[in-house]
Design a protein around this nucleic acid. Structure first.
Lengths: 227, 227
DNA sequence: GTTTTCATACAGACCGGTCGGTATGTAGAA
DNA sequence: TTCTACATACCGACCGGTCTGTATGAAAAC
């Protein structure tokens, strides 16, 4: 029994339902989004909905997984995950987040929205959200750790804590962007985080990263091994 | 016509309704909290509810104001707002937040919870949340600005951006604490922020603050004027 | 001082509508 | 013929909000 199927295997109607669910719940949350509404947006009916999902909560679970999966795919496509230099990976990730915030004008993360609303009432969903946040943190932590080892082994910051701080900041920034109806704060906060990073690493590290970036990818061979 | 009354003027039943609303909505959000539920928790009935509030949304507005008012009152009682040294105010504020997180085990901010759920669907509430976040940010910004002018005028950070980053981080940390069912992350993130602060200010500034703190209050006269 | 008046502060039954979910039906593929 | 993939009608529960009724106390009238 597999608990989750990959995006490719999903039939069209189910996929439309999931996409509609993601979009609607990102904006309005779980409780304010009705099953009928999701069906209408997906161009189907309740019959279709409950054919694919035993309950609204089940769609929500799968929607959360799909949302994460697509986010991670967009990271892979952006390319920074495979950069050879860890500090380069960190900086490129931040730049990617910044530019994708500037591009879109939907100020909401499905995971954050649902976590806020459902964590205390739906324990099994809560664990999914917890896992998602932990994964985000870990990804960044590993790069930060490697970057620290490489460029600033004596620095005072703890990679894990700093990564955790960034994820919190990012989620909080999206929340405040929602309230402000502008994602300016997200971009601004990422830049502040970069300022903090710069204060932890020697300036030379950033210069090296900047000049080496493109050639390092082109050559296909890291000048300095990661981690 | 006054738009908002101070806490003292609120009759007991209304107060109970507001308190019940705050507690329930902090945990479950707006939509998952029913009027009947609030009434039961407050020990009254729908008659009482709709005697004091034209609608559920109106109670929510007043609850948000009351929540903020009580938070600010707790800040005043903590005393750090009137400290003479701005860096001392900042550090004491952070320490206060840390210790109050350690004390309570409710991982939720009403404003953040409601902002997440209602910002896109309830424009007038959205503006209230926006204002609340702006106020929090401004409060911290002023202290940071004064502290920078006093101790690190050449530092690279922007007080406004750094304050904004902290508020985002704090709200995000609470969100993640909800998902993790533990406020460990909140305390940890505040400490990370302190580490960032320390990298912006000269170490001497913190030493001065620490040794001077108590005497400065006792004398009632700031050794160095704020702002 | 007593009675009448009237607003306040609720109680609780009730209403139309919406909710998540079910039961049943059916068109088309295999 | 059987199974999949839906459509549609429908259900009981519950929702926010309304309505009517009533206990109470203060003010006004006599």
């Amino acid at each position: 029994m597999k608990t989750h199927i990959s995006s490719q295997d999903i039939p069209e109607t189910k996929r439309k339902l999931l996409n509609a669910g993601i979009e609607l719940m990102r904006m309005k949350g779980f409780n304010a989004t009705s099953v009928a509404e999701i069906c209408e947006a997906a161009g189907t009916t309740k019959g279709g909905f409950f054919h694919y999902f035993p309950s609204k909560e089940d769609l929500t679970k799968e929607a959360a997984f799909l949302f994460r999966e697509e986010k991670m795919k967009s990271y892979e496509e952006a390319g920074f995950l495979s950069l050879p230099d860890p500090l380069d990976r960190v900086m490129s990730r931040l730049e990617f987040l910044k530019s994708s915030e500037r591009l879109h004008n939907i100020y909401s993360c499905l995971i954050g929205t649902l976590a806020q609303e459902l964590s205390t009432t739906h324990p099994d969903l809560r664990e999914i959200f917890q896992g998602a946040f932990a994964k985000m943190t870990k990804d960044l932590e590993l790069d930060l750790e490697a970057a620290k080892a490489l460029y600033a082994p004596e620095a005072v910051f703890d990679p894990r804590s700093l990564a955790s701080m960034f994820i919190s900041m990012f989620q909080g920034a999206i929340l405040i962007a929602k309230a402000a109806d502008s994602n300016e704060v997200v971009v601004d906060n990422i830049e502040s985080f970069i300022t903090c990073l710069r204060s932890f690493f020697p300036e030379a590290a950033f210069r090296k990263v900047k000049t080496r970036r493109k050639p390092a990818i082109a050559s296909g061979k890291p000048a300095i091994a990661a981690s």
